Simulated scan of single mutants.
Amino acid sequence: MNKKLKYAAAAIAVLGAAIYLNNTNHLAAHQEGKPVLLAHRGIAQRFDERELKNDTCTAARMLPSSHHYLENTIESMRASLAAGADVVELDVHPTTDGEFAVFHDWTLDCRTDGRGVTREHSMAYLKKLDIGHGYTADGGKTFPFRGKGIGLMPTLTEVLATFPRQRLLINVKGRDPSEGEKLAAVLDKLPAERRAQIMVYGGDEPVEIVRQRLPDVRTISRATIKSCLLGYIGYGWSGVVPKACHNAMVMLPINVAPWMWGWPHRFLNRMKAANSEVFVLGPYRGGEFSSGIDTPEQFARLPANYSGGIWTNEIEAIAPLVGK
């Protein structure tokens, strides 16, 4: 072997050793504490998730119910916190009378006795609807929640007033920048210490507005999470954290996590240093992120002594596994 090849081999060996030492967990501090649990939509009625499309009416595919809670309601949020959730996720739509309605669907037809696009109505109208109207687990033979959800659609203002100290994740359902302006105006009225307990995610345009207006609020959108994760896979070995990963809520599918340099402890430490918080989801299967870590089998895929965040639809099942 000539000298040039020897030098090249030595340089490669040194670089490899440096990358290893910079990313090995043997030299990384472990963040103590139990995982942070995020309850997606509070405690909700589950549904058959096979072959879902954007316009699938999930209320019509409800699985046999084990509880009486309806998603995105004050009661379901309160129950999820009591069950061990540290953070509650909720969905919001602007209304024609200046409020934000807490409701998941783009339209009212599936889940309620109303009709039309959610944001094209006033909150006064939405308050009159039965949000349990469309739930059925037997193809429409019975509707166990019909008549029980009248007036249960809350406003964002009501949620903030009911849970003044609890951590919240707000999902902006649309992509209109004006939604970001309106939401930023609402959050800007809160004390700085309260805003520090709130995260925002959703459409690229409104989330970017919130990110610009309120730099103390952690945010993430489809574009920024892709930029964050792909950037980190590309050059995170160096210890450099992509800009998109700063001051963010980092949503990380469990099957993508092993690709993160320094996973888990060094990765979590780097995100913490960037003022970001990591939440692991279920497996990414292309096109869409999975909804959550919802079974003991999925939970078992997390590293031992994992202390980051966990996104779940089954807070009642997952909380006992972490001792909450």
Rank of each mutant, 00 (worst) to 15 (best):
R222Y: 00
E208H: 04
G234R: 06
I209M: 12
D216N: 15
V102E: 06
A82L: 09
Y135Q: 09
L126M: 02
I220Q: 03
G234Y: 00
V217M: 10
W259I: 08
V186H: 02
Q298H: 07
H121T: 02
V117I: 15
F145D: 07
G98K: 13
T295F: 10
V256I: 15
R213E: 13
F103W: 01
T142H: 08
E179W: 06
L63W: 02
A44T: 14
V207P: 00
T107D: 08
I225G: 01
I12W: 04
P258V: 04
E314V: 01
A8I: 13
A196P: 00
K243T: 10
D113F: 03
G114V: 04
P253C: 06
P253N: 06
N72G: 06
N23T: 13
T73L: 02
Y232S: 06
D216I: 11
A44Q: 14
V280E: 03
H26S: 15
R61S: 09
V14F: 10
L168P: 03
K141R: 12
A192V: 08
F289D: 15
L160N: 13
T157I: 09
S291M: 14
N313K: 05
G140I: 01
A79E: 10
E205S: 08
P94S: 14
G116F: 03
K3N: 14
D91M: 06
W263A: 13
L230S: 07
P154S: 08
P296W: 05
G134H: 05
L21P: 08
N54C: 08
D176A: 13
V117A: 12
A124G: 04
S66N: 11
P35D: 05
S80C: 10
S178V: 15
V36L: 13
R270F: 08
L187M: 00
D86L: 06
V241Q: 00
C228Y: 01
V280T: 07
G292E: 08
P264Q: 11
A185W: 00
F100L: 13
